[in-house]
Computed example of a mutant assay.
Amino acid sequence: MIELDHLTKDYPGRTGPVRVLDDIDLVVQPGEILAVVGPSGAGKSTLAQCVNLLERPTSGSVRVNGRDLSRLSERELRVARRGIGTIFQSDGLQSRRTAAENVGLPLRYLGVTDRARKARVAELLDRVGLADRADYYPHQLSGGQRQRVGIARALALRPSVLLSDEATSGLDPETTRSITRLLKELRDDLNLSVLFITHEMDTVVDVADTVARIERGRIAEYGRLEDLLTSPESEVGEALISIDPDISTLFADSAHGVWQVSYGAADVRPDWLAHVSAEFGAHIGILQADVRVVHGAPVGWVVIQADADRACALETALRREGLAPKRLNAGASDAAAARVELEAVAS
């Protein structure tokens, strides 16, 4: 478990301290993957370095499994770090050592016997799907395979916490998905607390349970992934599942009404279109859609086209289904017609 309480980090600057992290509060529970996102320079990597105290916080506390690392002596900290595995953006493998030798390095430094070390390395390489690559050198492995060796090495000392700092950066989409699947399997099997630093928003949907967005060193958003994806106010949700920005222009002159319909609730039924069409009493067409299932719930948006003369009735029917409609091509005449209809319904 990772607990950050009022974490602050300053670096010296020409005119005084420069604050990189400002009053950060975060918790990563056992069995949870927390993705930290934000623009370059927001403080994401510094956050990861503060968790294992490669960078000492200026103030605040870093607790891992209940121990405040910032209060430990250097000797105690070295021991505590064994419970924290780290996966780096560059795999960090030693080029003159084989995959097996790279995985076994932490065990060698601790003086683990050759027999025990070989058994543990074989177990780990098998766990990450590289049992047949034990004697390969890094240059003989693909980028994804090298990252898997790095993951195996991070697990060598049986950590309870895993830090992943841009571990999928530079990998192709298929390899990235294989790495995120592996991380989720390890999280489930080993009950790990995983802090996943990334700037790749698509990866967040595949891997995260919770998301924290950092802006200028502060937490700007923090919550369960599915909650952010269904919140119309969430910048994380907008970035993860966003509508084509040109769509309003494409259908601006349509004789029909055009709406973006977002999934605003976790229990939207899959046949909502049939129910809304029946209640609305008119044909509804689908123009575009991006809908996916995250943690068992549908999230995303659908662009629909329908009769503009009954806009209020359509929007009411959509909201009953837990959907959030937004008109994309409403003109002055449409708005006037909508007000007339609304007045008629109210009376």
Rank of each mutant, 00 (worst) to 15 (best):
Y137A: 01
T203V: 15
G43K: 02
R292H: 07
G41C: 09
I241G: 02
F251S: 03
R320H: 09
L190R: 03
I197M: 09
V293Y: 15
A338R: 04
L93N: 06
D188N: 06
A252C: 06
E233V: 07
G13C: 03
G170H: 09
S231K: 05
G296T: 12
P138L: 02
K184T: 10
V345G: 02
V194E: 00
E343Q: 11
L141T: 07
A255P: 14
R269C: 12
R177A: 14
A265P: 01
E221K: 06
K326P: 00
H199S: 08
D22H: 14
G43T: 14
C50I: 08
A42S: 15
G144E: 13
A212H: 03
E215G: 11
S333A: 12
T113E: 15
A35V: 08
L105Y: 13
L328R: 03
I151C: 01
R56A: 11
R81A: 03
V121D: 03
E221F: 02
G170P: 06
D246S: 04
D227H: 09
G296Y: 13
I214T: 10
D10L: 12
L125C: 04
L110T: 05
A48N: 05
K184Y: 05
L69V: 01
E233S: 13
L4G: 06
A100I: 04
V36N: 03
L273I: 14
V128G: 00
Q147N: 06
V149G: 01
P39C: 10
N65T: 08
P30T: 11
S347D: 10
L328E: 03
N65A: 12
P138W: 02
A100L: 07
A308Y: 10
V204A: 09
T210K: 10
V28C: 09
T230L: 07
K184V: 05
S164F: 01
S277R: 14
I197P: 06
D135F: 01
N329R: 03
D202Q: 13
G16P: 05
I284L: 05
P39F: 07
S90Y: 11
L93D: 04
H295F: 09
R319C: 09
D10Y: 14
I286R: 11
A239F: 10
R96W: 08
L26Q: 11
S45L: 05
R117A: 07
H275A: 13
L287P: 15
D68W: 15
V20Q: 02
Q145K: 08
V268F: 10
Q49I: 08
P298L: 01
D307M: 09
T180K: 00
V268N: 12
G66D: 14
D253F: 05
E74C: 07
V37C: 10
S95M: 11
I284K: 02
D165A: 03
A311R: 10
S40H: 07
R14G: 15
V128N: 00
G331E: 12
Y263E: 13
N191R: 14
A338W: 00
V293Q: 13
V27W: 02
V20E: 02
D23F: 09
R127T: 15
T198K: 04
G13T: 14
L195D: 04
A252I: 07
N52D: 15
R63G: 00
